[in-house]
Computed example of a mutant assay.
Amino acid sequence: MPTKSSAITVPMRAALGLIGPATARGIAPDELLSRASIDRGLLDVPRARLSLKQFSRLFAAIVNALEDEALGLHSEPTRPGSVEMLCRTGVTTSTFADCAQVIARGCNAVLRGFKVDCIAEDGELQITLRERGGDPEKGLLAYEVPLLTIYAIMSWLVGRRLPLVCADFPCPPPRHRFELRSLLAGTIRFNQPHAALRFTEQANSLHIVRNAEEIPRFIRRAPASFIDTLLVRDSLASEVRRVLQQALPSLLSLPQVAERLAVSPRTLHRKLEAGGASFQRIKDDLRRDMALHLLTRGTTPLKQIATHLGFSDPSTFQRAFAQWTGLSPGEYRRRTQPRTAEKGHEGGVC
Rank of each mutant, 00 (worst) to 15 (best):
P2K: 14
T3E: 11
K4T: 09
R13I: 08
R13V: 07
T23H: 08
S34A: 15
A36P: 01
V45L: 04
P46R: 09
R47T: 13
R49G: 02
R49V: 14
K53C: 06
K53V: 15
A60Q: 14
N64Q: 13
L66F: 08
L66D: 10
D68C: 09
P77Y: 12
R79C: 01
R79Y: 12
P80T: 02
P80F: 02
L86W: 11
R88H: 04
G90M: 12
T95D: 03
C99M: 15
I103L: 15
V110H: 07
K115A: 15
V116Y: 08
C118W: 12
G139A: 09
Y143L: 01
S155E: 01
S155W: 05
G159T: 04
R160P: 01
C171N: 09
P172R: 08
G186Y: 06
I188V: 11
I188K: 04
R189F: 05
A196I: 03
R198L: 07
N211P: 03
P223N: 06
F226Q: 09
L230G: 00
D234Q: 12
A237L: 03
V240P: 00
R242S: 10
Q245W: 02
Q246I: 07
P249S: 08
L254T: 05
R260N: 05
L261T: 05
S264N: 01
R266G: 11
T267F: 04
Q280L: 13
T296W: 14
F311C: 01
T316Y: 07
Q318Y: 00
R319N: 07
S328I: 13
Y332A: 01
G347F: 01
V349W: 05
